[in-house]
Simulated scan of single mutants.
Amino acid sequence: MAKRRVSQLNCLIAVDKPVGCTSHDVVSRVRRALGERRVGHAGTLDPLASGVMVVGIGQATRLLGLLTLDTKAYVAEITFGSETSTDDAEGEVVREADVHPGLFEHAAAEAACRSVLGQQMQVPPSYSAISVNGVRSYKRARAGEDVELEARPIEVLAADPIAVANRDGVPVWTVAFTVSKGSYIRALARDMGRALGTAAHLSALRRTASGSIGLGSCVSLDDLDVRTACEHMLDPVRALDVPAVVLPERLREDVLCGKRLSSSIAVGADGRLLGEGERCALVSGGSLVALAAVQGSALAPRDVFPQPIGGVAL
């Protein structure tokens, strides 16, 4: 087996995914633009959607499953009068319904948005990446199977109507949502239509933030190269939302060998001594060297990065 080439670039970046490409397409384009094979992403976006996608390069791919991207923000366009097989504009129309004239009023959008706030159970779209007995739901749906997914708990933290338009005789709402991780805006659009006695589907979607990472941190795929990636590295410590501990240079090799350190050095940037079991990021020279946790009198490295992950800003 060929030995994996050491990555020359180890960092997190955010890209502004364009409409029409899949999340896998984004990874492929990043690989080509940077000449790196080890690339992954956090938080899938449908081809219809655009916006913030966090990408890991090199050693930073190991962080993708640890990121605290617990909330997502979107600007969504909801078109009333029809429901589709995919709950968005990519699917076939499966149901049409009359639309009450009141839905052309901004007051109706405000009331409907208030009604979806809070914790609730949501049935995901049948065309989703959720696995059913080891097979993706969308694959079963495309094969003609009748897919019924179980409702899952989500939370809508904010829902603010931006505009109400009349497009070809049907109301189209533009709404800014902030939701918990795992929420489907397509399903919110579908359910809002049903709750209002009509039908609806998602006709456009833009992710404006993933956790604390917004569009202002993103780079365009068309402009991406090694220099641009280096200039737009995300701070991995901030993305992980753990305290940073500055690692003395004399202990760096010990950490890279996985040796336990004295917990006396486990002091965060705010001067607080970390508590039992608390995770932290060991940083040195503007890079993330390891993730560790306090265990009694020791600071035990959990994840060590032989090629440190850049972008730390203390």
Rank of each mutant, 00 (worst) to 15 (best):
S137R: 00
E105G: 14
R31L: 02
C11P: 13
L188Q: 04
A111D: 15
T79A: 15
S115I: 00
D98A: 15
C218L: 05
R302D: 11
A165N: 14
L224M: 03
G197H: 05
A293V: 15
V27N: 06
T22R: 00
Q59M: 07
S180D: 10
V237Q: 00
A2K: 05
A107R: 14
D88T: 02
R272N: 09
R152M: 07
N166S: 15
S126R: 14
R279E: 15
D88S: 07
A244H: 05
R190P: 08
E77F: 08
S23E: 06
A76F: 01
P306M: 02
S220R: 01
Q295L: 14
R250D: 13
L188T: 12
G40K: 06
P308G: 01
E77W: 13
G51S: 01
V175E: 07
Q119M: 09
A244S: 10
S115D: 15
R4W: 10
L224Q: 00
N133I: 04
R302H: 06
G268P: 03
T228I: 15
S131T: 12
I78D: 09
S183E: 10
R206C: 04
V26A: 01
S263E: 13
E90S: 08
L251H: 13
G275I: 00
H24C: 08
L34R: 02
P161T: 06
A293I: 12
E249K: 06
M121H: 09
P101W: 00
R190G: 06
S85T: 15
V237I: 06
C113H: 02
V19A: 10
A141H: 13
L157E: 05
N166A: 15
I78C: 09
L256V: 10
V132M: 02
R38Y: 05
H106S: 11
G35P: 12
A141C: 12
R114E: 15
E83H: 12
S131F: 15
T61I: 02
V30H: 08
V175H: 08
L288Y: 07
S297V: 14
L234S: 02
K72M: 04
F80K: 03
V52W: 04
R252P: 10
R114G: 12
G81L: 05
R29T: 11
S263W: 09
V156T: 10
V304G: 01
V289A: 13
F104P: 11
E253G: 12
S220M: 00
L221G: 07
G182I: 01
R5A: 15
V172G: 10
R114Q: 15
V304C: 05
T208P: 11
D87P: 08
V27Q: 06
D225Q: 01
P301I: 01
S203C: 14
R4G: 12
G43H: 02
I57G: 06
Y74C: 10
R136T: 09
